[in-house]
C-alpha cells in the first residue's frame, strides 16, 4: 500500500533570484493506493497530476508531506536510501517514442535493468534471458520478433508495451501511467488499457492512472477511485462510478461536460456545465481555487478556501461550499 499525506510542491519559475514567479503544483494532496488497486487522477494540464506521478516515481522531489511506501515512511530515511523504495513505483511515459533509446535494441533496453536485478538477487544470465522473454510475452509481444529490433521498427502500441515490460523488470508494486495512451492510435489504445487492467489482476500491481480522459480512467479501474485535481488541490474524490454519474463539484462537472458527445450514439447530459475560461492563476489563496471560473460562485466562495470533506452528505469527498449533483454525462441513445 502506498499513501501520501499533505504533499506539497512549489515550482519557482525562471526569473532568477529577484523576479521568480511561484507556481503551486501541489497544495497538500492526500491519497491512498491499495495493493492491486487502481486510482485515477484527472484534471487539466498544469493541475499537478503529472508532478505527483513524477514524485512517486522518484523523479522529482517534494517540499513537504509524507509518503509511506509499504509501511515505510520516507521521512524516516535519508535521501539516498529512499531511492530503492521509489523504484518500486515505475512511471510509464506518455510518449512511447521518446521513452526508448532509438540507438539501442529492445534486447539492450531490457538487459540493463535486468542485469541490475540479477546482480541484486544473485541470478544468472540465463535467468535474464528467460525473464526478458517472459515479460515480453506477458505484455502480449512475440519475444523472438521484438528482442532484436530497434524502437523505430515497432508501432506506437508495441513500443508502449515494451515500455511496460521494461518497467516490470524491477518487479514494481505500482505503475504510474501518465497519459499512457494519448499518443497511441485510437484502435490500439484499448489494448494497452486492457493490458494495464490485466496486470492488476495477474501480478497484483496497483495502477495510478493519470489522464484527462475520464472514460479511460473508468475502464482501468471500475472498482477504483477517482481524484479530480484543480490547480494542485484535490477538489473531488470518490468511487469512479459515483464521481462520473453524480459529480458534485462544478469543476468535475465542467470536465465531464466537456467530453465530446457521440451524437447519434449518445444523448448529451441535461445539466452540462460550461465554465468560463482559465484565468490568470495569480489570484489570492483565500478563496475557492475554482471560484473565478465557476458559474455557481457566491460571496463565500471568494473569501474562503473550501477543504475536502463529505459536506452535504455526499457519497464522495469534495471541496465545494455548494455541492449539487448534476447529471452532465452523455447517455447511450442506441446499443451497438
Amino acid at each position: 500500500m502506498i499513501t501520501g499525506k499533505g504533499i506539497t510542491k512549489t515550482f519557482r519559475q525562471r526569473g532568477g533570484m529577484l523576479g521568480g514567479r511561484e507556481v503551486k503544483a501541489l497544495r497538500g494532496v492526500d491519497f491512498t493506493i491499495e495493493k492491486g488497486g487502481a486510482v485515477s487522477f484527472i484534471g487539466e494540464s498544469g493541475c499537478g497530476k503529472t508532478t505527483l506521478g513524477r514524485i512517486l516515481a522518484g523523479l522529482e522531489s517534494y517540499d513537504s508531506g509524507e509518503i509511506v511506501i509499504d509501511g515505510v515512511p520516507m521521512s524516516s530515511l535519508r535521501q539516498k536510501s529512499r531511492q530503492p523504495h521509489f523504484r518500486r513505483i515505475q512511471l510509464i511515459h506518455q510518449d512511447p517514442y521518446s521513452a526508448l533509446n532509438p540507438a539501442r535494441t529492445i534486447h539492450q533496453a531490457l538487459d540493463a535493468p535486468l542485469s541490475l536485478r540479477a546482480k541484486q538477487t544473485g541470478r544468472s544470465r540465463a535467468w535474464m534471458e528467460e525473464r526478458a522473454e517472459e515479460l515480453l510475452s506477458l505484455v502480449g509481444l512475440d519475444p523472438g520478433y521484438v528482442l532484436p529490433r530497434y524502437p523505430h521498427q515497432l508501432s506506437g502500441g508495441m513500443r508502449q508495451r515494451v515500455v511496460i515490460a521494461r518497467a516490470l523488470t524491477v518487479d514494481p508494486d505500482m505503475l504510474v501511467a501518465d497519459e499512457a495512451t494519448s499518443m497511441i492510435d485510437v484502435s490500439l489504445r484499448l489494448g494497452i488499457l486492457a493490458l494495464l487492467k490485466d496486470l492488476r489482476d495477474r501480478l497484483g500491481v496497483s495502477v495510478l492512472f493519470i489522464t484527462h480522459d475520464v472514460a479511460t480512467a473508468r475502464y482501468i479501474g471500475l472498482d477504483g477511485e477517482l481524484y479530480v485535481i484543480y490547480r494542485g488541490q484535490v477538489v473531488e474524490r470518490g468511487p469512479v462510478e459515483t464521481v462520473i454519474a453524480d459529480p458534485v463539484h462544478p469543476y468535475t462537472q465542467s470536465l465531464l461536460s466537456a467530453i465530446p458527445v457521440l451524437h447519434g450514439l449518445e444523448v448529451p447530459g441535461e445539466e452540462r456545465v460550461v465554465p468560463t475560461e482559465a484565468v490568470d492563476p495569480s489570484q489570492q489563496d483565500a478563496a475557492c481555487l475554482f471560484a473565478a471560473r465557476c458559474p455557481f460562485r457566491t460571496e463565500r466562495c471568494v473569501s474562503e478556501l473550501p477543504v475536502l470533506g463529505h459536506d452535504g452528505g455526499t457519497l464522495q469527498e469534495h471541496a465545494c461550499f455548494h455541492p449539487q449533483r448534476r447529471s452532465v454525462v452523455a447517455t447511450p441513445a442506441v446499443q451497438l
Partner: peptide, 12 residues
C-alpha cells in the same frame, strides 16, 4: 473503432 472507445456509462 466505435467499439474500441471506452465509454462513460454502461458495461465496460
Amino acid at each position: 473503432l466505435l467499439q474500441a472507445i471506452p465509454r462513460l456509462v454502461g458495461d465496460i
